[in-house]
Design a protein around this nucleic acid. Structure first.
Lengths: 196, 196
DNA sequence: CACGTTTTCTAGCGGCGCTAGACATGCGAG
DNA sequence: CTCGCATGTCTAGCGCCGCTAGAAAACGTG
């Protein structure tokens, strides 16, 4: 079985190499630059090898997105738990929002992969992959504390929309960058509401 | 001069035909289906004619986006002024949000053209086209009423981000459609804050 | 070492955005 | 009314895309 095990291990390594290279290339030059030809060239294999690992380019993007979702979740989770062990709702929301916006700013291509390109990845659905569910729960954990009379899941959805909107509008150059801190404060203030 | 005038008129008509056809095709089958070949076929001219009107496909998308921005602005403006002559801030915000979300739902392709595809169209910049400035001002007019101690422009930006986030997350299947009304109420409640 | 399986590559399909150069059209002058 | 020319339009093609069939190579097994 050693032979087959080695093959599987090598294949898994190449699988990871493809994803890491795709992500690298996307962050460096944008997803438009991630063509199957260029990606194949980078990993020093021919195009069909990519298709032996993934059903197509969309699947590669989705795989990068899924990894990224787990990372984003982890970043938010850590920020909330590390920085504010049992702080106020306001502080928790601020920590969450900061971590979310920071991660999106530092990983724009992966963020796009998660939210703009992976049209096949569903949320709030029986087929929703675990990392996406976990991401929502990481947000909900914080917003449940400031939901007041509102349904916490619904508030989380609205809050998430606000964060996501800030990310996309900022990146598109629609919002002046210098007021980002002011927007953060307004966001925290309004989302926390009277429960702060 | 009659000859030249006629030519200009015909050219302007064809210009509009291109934009209307592009928009139609995009709404019917998505922007991926709007190829220069298909678009040229629909208007019954060859591809180079498109390039005599626009610098490239991006310019066509941007032109559709600009028209759409004016429409969206008009829809929001009308909803706010017609439905609530001098109603509460809450009612005004609800009317605005409803109009915005409705328009986005009914014109998904144009909405994408405005916010996801026209990377060249800048906001909050000296080169910002008038329709985009007007859109922001239509929102700001309402949110200034409920800004309280916050800077109204900043609140408008955050509110806009929330609306935009709801649009994109909903369309990507990230938010369950059946709770859209609940999200609207939470959005209104939180954005209006204590100034309601 | 030779065979058969598995893996990888070469080459090509149809379609994309875009453009150079051939061709047609229609105006104004004689 | 006709001709020459400018303007407008089309044909054909470039380099690239995602993707794949079939040839070629590599490798484990008897």
């Amino acid at each position: 079985m050693t032979v087959q095990q080695r093959k599987e291990r090598d294949r898994a390594a190449r699988h990871r190499l493809i994803l890491a290279t795709a992500r690298e290339l996307a962050e460096a030059e944008g997803w438009d630059a991630v063509t199957t030809r260029r990606l194949a060239g980078r990993i020093e294999y021919s195009q069909p090898v990519l298709y032996s690992h993934f059903g197509g380019k969309d699947e590669i993007v989705s795989a990068v997105a899924l990894e990224g979702a787990a990372e984003l979740t982890e970043a938010v989770h850590r920020a909330v738990h590390a920085a504010v062990p049992d702080a106020s709702g306001t502080a928790a929301v601020r920590a969450l929002a900061t971590a979310y916006l920071d991660w999106a700013r530092e990983n724009p291509a992966v963020y796009d992969a998660i939210f703009s390109m992976s049209t096949g990845l569903r949320f709030a659905d029986e087929a929703t992959p675990a990392p996406l569910r976990a991401a929502f729960e990481a947000l909900d954990e914080v917003f449940a504390r400031v939901a007041g009379s509102a349904d916490s899941g619904t508030l989380t959805e609205v809050a998430w929309a606000t964060l996501h909107g800030l990310v996309t509008l900022t990146r598109a150059g629609r919002l002046p960058a210098e007021y980002a801190p002011a927007r953060l404060e307004v966001l925290v203030d309004r989302l926390v509401g009277a429960a702060g």
